[in-house]
């Protein structure tokens, strides 16, 4: 019996070996290599010559004021884009979940930002935000809200907001679609029962509908958070992390350290910090998910 089981186990290992090897080669090795790099002083100029320096890259990073700013900016960017995308996506999903003429068209249209390549989005918005010729300033000043020349991307106080705006516009269709699918899985009879029990409009939404899609929202927040930690092209193309580090998130900083300052070791250390942050978010997700499963009497 036992040897039989062992034989089956061996067969199973043979079965999954190709996938494991492939993952080890394309995922495992780069991760390990990146972690190793973070303990060296490797330079982009001579990537094959490296000296082990222990935790020096990390201590240097955390002693830099600029890195602390980077962490704060990353947190603001991640939180802002996740909340924005979930709230806007939920609103869009609720609208699309209702019956109205032209619903199919709206459902198709709403996907446009998601389907547009990031580079195209960034270039279009650079022009929209342009202080002198941009359509945004033109529109706002023609209705008298501003008088000309707002530096949407070049004013340190506005840049993060502008970048967030573009990011949310780009990613909310994804959350809208995911949440729409979840909304359609909430039985209509639950909302009807709540109406009979005395819940009205907003209360039906918060008492019945949102708890019904709670777990989808959790997964969505997990994905959006991790993606926002690694989003690079959009920010780089809009602001290059500027002005004065106002939009300098972790990955932008990583790129700057590695490929502008040629300090691969330090860039790798930033990468490790981001990696740990993603793991931390995932752990929090599992904790919350387990707790709500226990509450619902599943465990």
């Amino acid at each position: 019996m036992q040897s039989n089981e062992r034989a089956i186990n061996r067969e199973a290992w043979f079965g999954i070996a190709p996938a494991v090897l492939l993952l080890a080669a394309v995922q495992g090795y780069p991760i390990l290599r990146g972690i190793y790099l973070s303990f060296t002083n490797t330079s982009l100029l001579s990537p094959n010559r490296s000296t082990f320096v222990g935790l020096r890259n990390f201590t240097a990073l955390f002693n830099l004021d600029s890195f602390q700013i980077t962490m704060v900016k990353t947190l603001v960017y991640a939180t802002g884009s996740v909340i924005g995308a979930v709230v806007l996506g939920l609103a869009a999903a609720l609208v699309m979940n209702g019956a109205f003429p032209g619903r199919r068209l709206v459902r198709a249209m709403i996907l446009v930002p998601w389907a547009t390549p990031q580079v195209a989005v960034a270039l279009v918005f650079v022009w929209i935000f342009n202080a002198d010729y941009g359509v945004l300033n033109y529109a706002l000043s023609s209705i008298g809200l501003i008088d000309g020349g707002v530096l949407w991307l070049n004013d340190p106080d506005l840049a993060m907001g502008s970048v967030l705006l573009v990011t949310i516009w780009k990613i909310f269709p994804f959350s809208a679609l995911v949440l729409l699918a979840a909304l359609q899985s909430v039985p209509a009879s639950l909302e009807e029962a709540a109406r009979i029990d005395g819940a009205r409009g907003f209360a039906v939404l918060t008492e019945i509908t949102l708890p019904g899609i709670r777990r989808t929202i959790l997964v969505l927040v997990l994905f959006l958070s991790i993606w926002s930690l690694r989003r690079f092209e959009l920010i780089w193309l809009l602001t290059q992390g500027g002005p004065v580090r106002a939009t300098n998130t972790l990955v932008v900083d990583l790129y700057r350290q590695g490929f502008v300052n040629a300090h691969l070791g330090r860039a790798a250390a930033i990468g490790v910090v981001g990696f740990l942050a993603s793991i931390l978010i995932t752990i929090v997700y599992y904790y919350v998910e387990q707790r709500s499963a226990r509450r619902a009497g599943e465990a």
Partner: peptide, 14 residues
């Protein structure tokens, strides 16, 4: 002021 019992009971699962 009516009560309604649904075919699927429509209990609030959470």
């Amino acid at each position: 002021n009516i009560a309604f019992v649904f075919q699927t009971y429509a209990l609030y699962p959470h």
